[in-house]
Measured scan of single mutants.
Amino acid sequence: GAPPLPPYSAGGREVTMKKGDILTLLNSTNKDWWKVEVNDRQGFVPAAYVKKLDSGTGKELVLALYDYQEK
Rank of each mutant, 00 (worst) to 15 (best):
residue 53 L to K: 03
residue 30 N to Y: 05
residue 66 Y to A: 04
residue 67 D to K: 02
residue 24 T to G: 07
residue 66 Y to P: 00
residue 10 A to V: 10
residue 62 V to P: 00
residue 49 Y to K: 04
residue 48 A to F: 04
residue 50 V to E: 01
residue 62 V to T: 02
residue 41 R to G: 12
residue 71 K to D: 14
residue 23 L to P: 01
residue 21 D to L: 04
residue 14 E to Q: 15
residue 59 K to N: 12
residue 70 E to M: 10
residue 47 A to D: 01
residue 21 D to M: 15
residue 43 G to T: 03
residue 15 V to I: 14
residue 69 Q to E: 13
residue 40 D to Y: 09
residue 49 Y to I: 04
residue 44 F to C: 07
residue 12 G to D: 08
residue 39 N to Q: 12
residue 22 I to M: 06
residue 55 S to C: 11
residue 8 Y to D: 09
residue 31 K to T: 08
residue 15 V to C: 08
residue 30 N to R: 07
residue 44 F to I: 05
residue 41 R to A: 12
residue 14 E to P: 14
residue 16 T to Q: 09
residue 70 E to K: 13
residue 54 D to R: 08
residue 29 T to V: 08
residue 62 V to A: 15
residue 45 V to Y: 01
residue 67 D to S: 06
residue 60 E to K: 10
residue 11 G to Q: 13
residue 39 N to R: 13
residue 28 S to H: 08
residue 45 V to A: 04
residue 22 I to C: 04
residue 26 L to R: 03
residue 31 K to R: 10
residue 50 V to R: 00
residue 36 V to I: 06
residue 37 E to F: 05
residue 39 N to E: 15
residue 23 L to F: 07
residue 46 P to C: 03
residue 71 K to A: 14
residue 4 P to N: 07
residue 15 V to N: 04
residue 48 A to I: 11
residue 67 D to E: 05
residue 21 D to N: 06
residue 53 L to V: 10
residue 44 F to T: 02
residue 53 L to F: 12
residue 14 E to Y: 14
residue 31 K to I: 09
residue 39 N to L: 10
residue 5 L to P: 10
residue 48 A to H: 08
residue 70 E to H: 11
residue 2 A to K: 12
residue 38 V to L: 15
residue 67 D to G: 06
residue 32 D to F: 14
residue 7 P to I: 07
residue 18 K to C: 09
residue 9 S to R: 14
residue 44 F to G: 01
residue 54 D to L: 12
residue 26 L to P: 00
residue 46 P to V: 02
residue 21 D to F: 04
residue 18 K to M: 09
residue 55 S to Y: 11
residue 42 Q to V: 14
residue 7 P to L: 07
residue 62 V to I: 06
residue 63 L to M: 14
residue 41 R to Y: 09
residue 12 G to I: 09
residue 50 V to I: 06
residue 9 S to W: 11
residue 33 W to F: 04
residue 23 L to N: 01
residue 8 Y to F: 13
residue 42 Q to Y: 07
residue 62 V to Q: 00
residue 31 K to D: 13
residue 44 F to E: 02
residue 57 T to G: 15
residue 54 D to V: 13
residue 48 A to L: 13
residue 31 K to S: 12
residue 9 S to M: 15
residue 26 L to Q: 03
residue 9 S to A: 14
residue 53 L to A: 03
residue 12 G to A: 07
residue 37 E to H: 05
residue 29 T to N: 14
residue 41 R to Q: 12
residue 15 V to W: 04
residue 8 Y to S: 13
residue 34 W to D: 00
residue 15 V to M: 14
residue 47 A to E: 03
residue 65 L to Q: 04
residue 60 E to C: 10
residue 24 T to C: 08
residue 49 Y to C: 05
residue 60 E to S: 13
residue 16 T to V: 07
residue 48 A to E: 11
residue 31 K to Q: 12
residue 13 R to M: 14
residue 45 V to N: 00
residue 2 A to D: 07
residue 60 E to R: 11
residue 45 V to I: 08
residue 26 L to E: 03
residue 40 D to K: 10
residue 24 T to N: 09
residue 13 R to G: 11
residue 71 K to L: 13
residue 71 K to T: 15
residue 17 M to D: 00
residue 41 R to T: 13
residue 57 T to I: 11
residue 34 W to G: 00
residue 8 Y to I: 11
residue 24 T to D: 07
residue 37 E to M: 09
residue 5 L to H: 08
residue 27 N to M: 07
